[in-house]
Amino acid sequence: MNKKKLSILITLVFLIVVSQAALAHTPILYVEDYHDGTIYVQGGFSDGSSASGTDIILVTEQEFAGDTEARDQYLDKIGAEKPAGEAELFEEKLVIYRTQLDDFSEAVIEKPAVDYKVIFAAGPGHNVIEKGPKLTDSEL
């Protein structure tokens, strides 16, 4: 094989290996509506690595305008303590609730009464955002 063909072959193999490594850790988020007022959330990575301990964040769909009522009502509903101080924001939206995935990379979370998004927050460049299923009248 001549040198030119060999160098092209080596370059192609190198590019394939590098591209596989770049795609090997894509975050994945699965959100299922249990239709009982809760959602099932599972997170993971395309290479099969665990997402245990990764943050799951519920945020309002609307940009924060200074009103924390949606968060406060949700925290009252689930019996959680309201945070002191400034409201926590994620990309200009009010954080309603924050939890972490369990040892099986799963969580069951009560649905808020407002339109919301579910965020799999695995770090910069590794966030996945899904629209959360609405709370229906029969689930109230």
Rank of each mutant, 00 (worst) to 15 (best):
Q42K: 15
A24T: 07
T68A: 09
L101P: 07
D67H: 03
L6P: 02
E88R: 06
K134N: 14
I28L: 13
I57N: 07
N2M: 02
T26K: 11
D33R: 06
A113T: 12
A21E: 11
P112H: 10
Y116C: 07
P112D: 08
I10R: 05
G85I: 05
T99H: 00
F90C: 09
L94C: 07
Y116K: 08
P27W: 01
E69R: 15
T54A: 12
L58G: 00
K77D: 11
K131C: 01
G79W: 00
P124G: 06
E61Y: 02
S19E: 07
V108R: 09
L135N: 10
I39M: 11
F104E: 14
V114A: 13
V31L: 03
S50W: 07
L15E: 00
L58Y: 06
H35S: 15
K82Q: 12
E92M: 05
S50L: 00
G44R: 03
L58T: 06
M1D: 11
S52R: 06
D72W: 01
A122R: 09
V95T: 10
L12H: 00
D67W: 01
E61Q: 09
L89Q: 08
E110M: 04
K117L: 15
E91Y: 13
K77S: 12
P27N: 11
D137K: 14
I129E: 11
Q62G: 01
G123R: 04
E92P: 02
I16H: 02
Y74S: 03
D115M: 10
Y116P: 04
N127Y: 14
P27M: 08
G125D: 12
D137N: 13
K131N: 15
K111W: 10
A21C: 09
I129K: 13
A51I: 10
V128F: 05
E61H: 01
T60Y: 05
I96S: 02
E81I: 15
I57F: 00
R98Y: 06
A107L: 08
E81T: 14
A87N: 03
I109M: 10
F104I: 01
F14S: 15
I39K: 08
K134G: 10
E32Q: 14
L23E: 08
P124T: 15
L23S: 11
L29G: 12
V13M: 15
G53H: 03
V18T: 12
Q42L: 10
E110V: 10
A87W: 01
L6Q: 13
F64H: 00
K134M: 13
V31S: 08
K111L: 04
T99I: 06
A21G: 12
D137F: 11
E110T: 09
T68D: 08
K93E: 04
Y30R: 14
D137G: 07
E61M: 05
E91L: 14
T54R: 12
T54I: 14
Y34W: 00
S19C: 13
L58S: 05
D36G: 07
D115P: 03
F64Q: 02
G125S: 08
V13N: 01
A107D: 08
P124K: 14
L12Y: 02
E32L: 09
D47R: 14
